[in-house]
């Protein structure tokens, strides 16, 4: 009876697996990444500068927060990327644990530090916003604490994935950590609804009109798009470097062949 139940899954995983492995080929990724890089880097640069410039100089001050609201144009994109970056890490971990996807392992290595950086900027800008508005740098409410936990999850992942001599073991342990830490993502998202917090609820929701004037929403959207493309650009650049480094390691680990080739050429 189990056999019939599972009979559909092998084809599904098989087909999906074939699709993933098509892009798991590092050589193919290097070519794709080479072509993609300028399309990420330049729009990211332009949109980030437009979004932040608009937010800093042209968007209106808030009726009660005054100019401090401008911190939002860096804080919110970083908060969004902290969670999205971790979500990408979770996706890589599933690809790694189930399909042994080699590119997903290299991607997880490169996403970790970038995600930790945006989470740190999110926490720091949140503090810089909280001090003048709330009257405190930090408070142990559910939103702030769950984002701090996310930061520690990133740090743990960074350390664990590099902790073993055999990289495969590191990939596996870090993937399990990232997957388990995934429970923090819904906690971050819903913390402001489930519990009372000092942090305000989300202004932008799927269900209602954004409780934000459009004159502030536009620079926020542009800046968020710019930061997101910038995150992708940095991760793709690091991943290209990571693929090359793994190839360099492979070349160096067979030194005899390399040396033979060199002497052959010299002769």
């Amino acid at each position: 009876m189990n056999g019939r139940n599972l009979s559909a899954t092998p084809t599904l995983t098989g087909r999906a697996g074939a699709l993933f492995h098509r892009y798991a080929n590092p050589g193919r990724f290097l070519r794709l990444g080479d072509r993609m890089q300028p399309w990420l880097t330049w729009p990211a640069l332009v949109l980030t500068l437009v979004g932040l410039g608009w937010g800093l100089f042209f968007s209106p001050a808030d009726w009660q927060q005054g100019d401090s609201v401008r911190i939002m144009y860096v804080h919110v994109p970083c908060a969004w990327l902290a969670s999205s970056g971790y979500f990408a890490l979770v996706v890589c971990s599933v690809l790694s644990l189930v399909w042994r996807h080699p590119l997903a392992d290299l991607a997880a290595v490169e996403i970790g530090p970038v995600g930790a950086c945006v989470t740190a900027v999110c926490l720091a800008t949140g503090s810089l916003w909280g001090k003048p508005m709330w009257g405190t740098w930090w408070v142990w409410d559910a939103r702030l604490t769950s984002v701090l936990v996310l930061f520690f999850l990133y740090l743990g992942h960074i350390a664990l994935i590099r902790a073993f001599d055999d990289p495969q073991r590191g990939y596996r342990a870090a993937a399990i950590l990232a997957l388990a830490g995934g429970v923090d993502l819904p906690i971050i998202k819903f913390s402001v609804q489930w519990w009372n917090t000092l942090h305000q609820p989300d202004s932008i929701t799927l269900t209602g009109a954004p409780t934000m004037s459009h004159s502030m929403l536009w620079p926020l959207a542009i800046s968020t798009l710019g930061f997101t493309l910038g995150f992708a650009a940095i991760v793709v650049a690091r991943l290209r470097a990571g693929v090359m480094e793994s190839r360099i390691r492979a070349l160096l680990s067979s030194p005899r062949r390399a040396r033979d080739a060199a002497t052959e050429q010299a002769a």
Binding site: P60, A61, D62, W63, M72, P201, S203, T211
Partner: peptide, 18 residues
């Protein structure tokens, strides 16, 4: 011993609020 202000999730320019 300490009072913290908790602002809400609405953001609008002064003119609109007025």
């Amino acid at each position: 011993s300490e009072v913290l202000a908790k602002h809400d999730e609405t953001y609008m320019p002064k003119e609109v609020a007025e």
